[in-house]
Amino acid sequence: MQVIPLSTIDLSIAAALVVFLALLSNRLGLGLSKRLLISGLRMTAQLMLIGLILRQLFASYNVWLILILAAVMILIAGREILTRQKIRLRGMYGYGVGVISITISSFTIALFSLLVIIEVEPWYTPQYAIPLIGMLLGNTMTGISLATDRLTTDIHTHRNLIEQRLYLGETWQRASEDIRKNAMRTGMIPIINAMAAAGVVSLPGTMTGQILGGSPPLEAVKYQILILFLIAAGTGFGVVAAIWLTSRSLFDKRYRLCLEKLKKVQ
């Protein structure tokens, strides 16, 4: 089977749908049209750029180029995690939490699967390494940012309650237990739902792509299962790290809730 190549005209027709939607939304006074168009343009530019970069990478097989690309993606993801929080940790620490947890959730998990599960030679073979890292980054980033946002917002909202639990001699871990649990749940629910719906309600992206690309359905499904396990584990480890690093830094060694470390962003 061969993939049918898409022409510029083909893509323009698809884009026209989004433009039409923007016009309709504008006409009905529903807003969003400008943001829709801008993010559409952004998406096209970003993907074209990464397409060009990938073409180079696939041709070169250079481990350093792949590591640099991964590092750049991780640094951008760390920033993205931070900007999605309405209430965030001040200073570089907040950014650091995002970068550390996304590194755990995507880079280490991708590396592990390349070395131990897929066992491709060499491990940085771009055809495997790049899609894996990219897929893990995108999906685990959502979980981590949802969880962190929930955590900082809830700690800020329930500051009096936490403090009253501290008055009763509870440790900071115990006083923030319910809030940390909720943050964990918030971060993990999307991937848990995705696993529950996979194949029944939705055909997830990896297998859809591979099937479109001509792979036998069963092989495509096996890769999809692998990816979903990796995303679930990656999100979980990343969320656990983010919750721990964030909540730990919000209490000092005398178990005082350090609200001054949080800042509200409009």
Partner: peptide
């Protein structure tokens, strides 16, 4: 910190319940 707050305990005017 836990020991200290069990020795010196604050009862707030408006209580919160979890």
């Amino acid at each position: 910190p836990s020991q200290w707050r069990r020795l010196i305990s604050l009862v707030p005017a408006e209580s919160m319940w979890w």
